[in-house]
């Protein structure tokens, strides 16, 4: 019990530092928020008034406290650039897009990696295994933006099978949404597939050395049956853990893909706000991303020991 409390305390400390750090960093931005808000050419008095309004003359910690207390109630403030939207609303609109992208990408990666890993593990050191291994290393060496560009070149422009830079909200139509999400999800899935395939393949090869596999073979069960029925499940635990962590990781990493495909997600939100000097939005967005990231990782950490029955078995 004490351990749990310690972890929670650590978590809160981390979140506190992250938000404070972001706040401080953003306050160092070059652009003058008053100018950003009102535009050029106003009088100094007007700018001064805006700065007073935004509370920019208060000490850092006071401002931080005000912002934080508002944030905890869900109010992340208003953007300083036109149109002066509520940030929480914008984040609420952008977050599902990023989440959907992350989930779809992960799902596709899962779909691809299982057959590849099984095929490789069937004959370790054989042709397929070596080819898949080299291919995985190769794919991991392609930066995501390059992969995205290549995919666009081939599938969108070249063959014209998929559109680029369009988006339909999920609420507006599932098929359309999936159609538009396919290419960006594929781009994300590539790197994830490469990583998962290697991990799953290694796990499978280890599991296949176990005695119960030999026992199954001695019962006359065929290789396909053994692979699916006996080998896959025990090997999938570390994969599932990594997927969980990957999901958390993806929340921030979809930035490039969103930018390439011009999707209205969190990444585009942050980049756009950063470029426009909209520091309040950057603060809010980074906070949300960091919170989700930290919470997801903590959750995975906590459940890992529980999920794997082999670890559970040690206590039986």
């Amino acid at each position: 019990m004490i351990r749990v409390l310690k972890r929670v305390a650590e978590l809160l400390a981390v979140l506190f530092i992250v938000s404070l750090g972001t706040f401080w960093l953003v306050s160092k931005m070059d652009s003058d928020p008053a100018v950003t808000m009102l535009g050029e050419g106003r009088t100094e008095a007007e700018y001064a008034a805006v700065r007073e309004d935004l509370g920019l003359n208060d000490p850092l910690l006071t401002r931080y406290w005000d912002w934080l207390s508002n944030a905890l109630t869900g109010d992340l403030g208003k953007s300083v650039v036109p149109p002066y939207n509520g940030i929480s609303d914008r984040i609420a609109a952008a977050l599902p897009v990023s989440l959907e992208l992350a989930v779809l990408g992960m799902g596709m990666a899962l779909l691809f990696c299982i057959p590849l890993a099984m095929w490789s593990a069937y004959r370790p050191g054989g042709r397929v295994d070596r080819a898949v291994g080299a291919g995985a290393l190769g794919v991991l060496s392609i930066p995501s933006f390059l992969a995205g560009l290549l995919i666009i070149m081939v599938l969108a422009n070249g063959l014209g099978w998929f559109p680029r830079a369009q988006w339909t909200r999920l609420s507006d139509g599932v098929w359309d949404n999936l159609y538009h999400a396919f290419l960006p999800a594929l781009t994300i899935a590539l790197a994830e597939t490469a990583m998962f395939t290697r991990i799953l393949r290694n796990d499978l090869v280890t599991t296949l050395q176990d005695d119960f596999i030999l026992a199954a073979k001695a019962k006359g069960m065929g290789p396909k049956h053994i692979m699916f029925s006996d080998a896959l499940r025990p090997s999938s635990f570390s994969l599932m853990t990594l997927m969980g962590i990957g999901l958390g990781r993806l929340i921030g990493s979809t930035v490039i893909v969103e930018y390439l495909f011009a999707l209205p997600g969190m990444g585009t939100l942050v980049i756009g706000a950063a470029n426009a000097g909209d520091f309040v939005t950057v603060q809010g967005a980074v906070l949300v991303i960091a919170v989700m990231y930290v919470l997801t990782n903590a959750l995975i950490d906590a459940s890992y020991g529980y999920l794997d029955p082999r670890i559970r078995r040690a206590h039986v």
């Binding site: 979140l15 942050v270 950063a274 980074v286 960091a290």
Partner: peptide
């Protein structure tokens, strides 16, 4: 440990972008 975890709490690319704007 806490400081390291804080740094790790921000997705790397976001961190870079945030720094790049400053």
């Amino acid at each position: 440990s806490i400081l390291t975890n804080s740094l790790l709490a921000i997705p790397p690319l976001i961190l870079l972008i945030a720094l790049a704007t400053v």
